[in-house]
Every structure is written in C-alpha cells, then in structure tokens.
Design a protein around this nucleic acid. Sequence first.
DNA 1: TGACAATGAATGAACGTTCATTCATTGTCT
DNA 2: AGACAATGAATGAACGTTCATTCATTGTCA
Lengths: 209, 209
Amino acid sequence: MSQIQTDSLPDRRCQILDAALVCFAKHGFHQTSMHDISAEAGISVGLIYRYFENKEAVISAMADRHKKEISEVLQRAKQAPTLLESLEILFTAHCCEEESPVVSAFVVDLYSEASRNPQVADLVRDVLQTAMDGVTELISKAPEGQNTTRGLLPIELAELIFAVARGMLMLDVLRPQEMTATERRERQLQVTRRLWSCLFKPEAELAYA
Amino acid sequence: MSQIQTDSLPDRRCQILDAALVCFAKHGFHQTSMHDISAEAGISVGLIYRYFENKEAVISAMADRHKKEISEVLQRAKQAPTLLESLEILFTAHCCEEESPVVSAFVVDLYSEASRNPQVADLVRDVLQTAMDGVTELISKAPEGQNTTRGLLPIELAELIFAVARGMLMLDVLRPQEMTATERRERQLQVTRRLWSCLFKPEAELAYA
DNA sequence: TGACAATGAATGAACGTTCATTCATTGTCT
DNA sequence: AGACAATGAATGAACGTTCATTCATTGTCA
C-alpha cells in the first residue's frame, strides 16, 4: 500500500542520482543524456520522469545532495581535536572519503553551471557560506587560531583557506587518471599543512619546520 | 593572392574566436551552438568550417589563445617592481585587464573540459606549469622572498599562490552580475594582499598591519 | 573569366520528453 | 480462499526539436 510508495520513492530517486553522479562526473552535465543516466541506473528513460520533472531537476537535486554531503564533512571537521586535523578533513573530503564521493570534476561542473544558472548559483553560495561560517567559528575557538594569525581576522583566514581548497580541487581535475586516491590525498595533505603552517604556526616553531 | 590568404585567414580566425569567447563565457562550450557563434561574429555558419575543422577545434584554439594571454600576463607580472605588485597583476588579470578579457566562467569551463578532454588537459597543465615556473623564479629572485618564507621553498609558495588564484577565480563565477569589475578587482586585491602578508611579510611589520 | 570567399538551406544523428501499453501487486467482494 | 478489479511502477518506441556538419550556389575580386 503506502509502504511501497514511501519506501521506494526516495530509493529510486537515490538510485537515479547515484547513476547521474557517475555520468556527470564522467561526461559533464550537458554531455550526459537521459538515456545515459537510465542505462547507468539500469532502468528505463521514462521512469526518470516519474521521479524528476526534467533534466534540470536532476541537476538541482544533485546540487542539493552535494550540499548535504558538504555539511556532513563540516560536522566531522568540527569534531576533530585540532585545527590542523579539521583542515585536513576539509581538504581531503573530495578525493578520499568513502562515504561522500564528492568527485572533483562534478564540483567544477557545478561551479560552471552556477555561472549561468542562478538557482544553482544560490545553492552553491549557500553551501559555501555555511561552510565558511563553520570554519570561521572553528578558528575563533581553536587555541591555535588565537595569537598567531598574523593580524588577520578568523573570517579572513577562512576565506584564504577556502580559496586554497577550491584551487586544489580544480587542480585535481588536471591530474592524470593513473594517480591513485592515496597519492592525491598525500598531495592534498602536503599543501594543507603548508597552508596551516603559514597561517597558524607560531614563528618560534619555524626553525624545526 | 596569397596576400589575401595570409592576411584575412588569421583575421577571420580571430574574429570567430572573439565571438566564441563571448558565447562560451555566456553559455558554456556545449550549450553554445555553431549558429550562436556565427551570429555573434556576424558571418554564416558555413564560413566557420572554412577556418576550423569542427567545434572541437574551436575549443582547442580558444585554449591555445588562453595560453598566450596567460603568458602575456606573466610577462607583465615579471616586470613589476615588487613581488606584491606582481601578484596583484596575476590575481586581477581575469576580471580587470582590458586587453585580455580572460573571463572567469570560461576558465572554469576550460578546467571542466580538461577533466574529460586529455588534449585540453595537457594544454592547461602546460599553461599552469609555465606560469608556476615563472612565479617560482620571481620569488627566488625577489628580496621579499628571501628570508620570510616561513621555511617554505619558492616552489611551495608558488603552489599556494596559484591555488588561491584558482580558488578566487572560481568564487568569481558565484558573484552576482551586478558587481562591477572594479568591485571584483577590489575584493581580489584584498585577498591578494592578505595572502602576501601571510607568505612574505616579515613578522616585525605585523604590528602595523 | 577564373579563383576564392561567403552564404544558408539541407541533412541526418542525437537529444529531451511524452505516452500508450504492460504487468506484478494490492484491495475487494463472494 | 478464490476470482476479479484497480493500481501505478516501469517500459521503450515515437515525437518534435536542436545541433554539427555539408555543399550547391552566389558574390567579389584581379
């Protein structure tokens, strides 16, 4: 009865979005056809239109899902014992975390889409603002962020941190495919630590850096 | 005879690429039709195929042109009297320079394209490497880069600088259209100076920051 | 006139979307 | 329980449209 409806409806949507992510990451939004998605999901084309109004709605739903994944990453980052570890979680989420496969190519596409689709732009802006607020708060409360911030406010530091994170994510799409997730992660962590040492490491420790 | 060929051929190509940039920046590569480009250029569709083999070739040529523009920006940056001014040129090229209108949305699209098109990826990697080498050299030679680099090598600093530059460029596509080029430039410069102060400003000067 | 630049209608493939149809499941009645 | 009606999830061929690409034709010079 209604059990099937309420159970299968979100499942189907999820199944379709999973397939869409694979296709979008591989070929981009506008080079992925609805037939591609249906084939990847193992269902018929028509069925997609039972769960999504049109292709645009699939893209929007993907953006929405991205928002949830990012806020989960943020939650995990907030619980890390040190500021450096928080940053490491934030910087490596897109290439390493099993649970939230935020594929770099998809995110770059999302920004590309945001530049013409105001609805997507609003959503991405919202995600970014929430994440930045979280990190700003993280810095304000962290002992490392108190006195070694080189005269910059927590929010200014957060802006720099997010700029670097986005920039590294962009770099990620240029990396040859033969690079493993572990190798990517290692490169990400190196840059994260360098940034951290620039922003937060007390001058006194530099001799040992 | 050959005068017309050698003279008009590059001009037409340039005219077509100018039109393509406008369309690509506005709608993206794959949502721009050849008719859009021909209309923007004020010529017929068929004529485009006299100067470019196909749409892919237009995109590749755009990427090539991007490469030339970036190296021009780099040349200008190299001639700046201080390291900070070099960075300011590099960071504001995409939203302010009249001669090389490297539109942010186009560059994000270029990275998006690079993630599936190995030919474009190679080119973007090449551009990036050249620019990074230039900046690394700039840092090595600059007096500001000598002793206040917080234990980081010039190449490591260059990586951070380019990550921030790419990240800010990405942010640029989220900005509401009503923001003027001057306002964007101001925001860019703020972040540039903050980054510079983190990476290069001697600790002694911080009191006045 | 001959050579080349330029046009834009024509082509066919590919796309997003629709919808008549199928069929396993669920509900209802005797 | 058994027979029948109703549901709606799922299908995939078909539709109208758009797009990249081609090419017969026209315009423009020397």
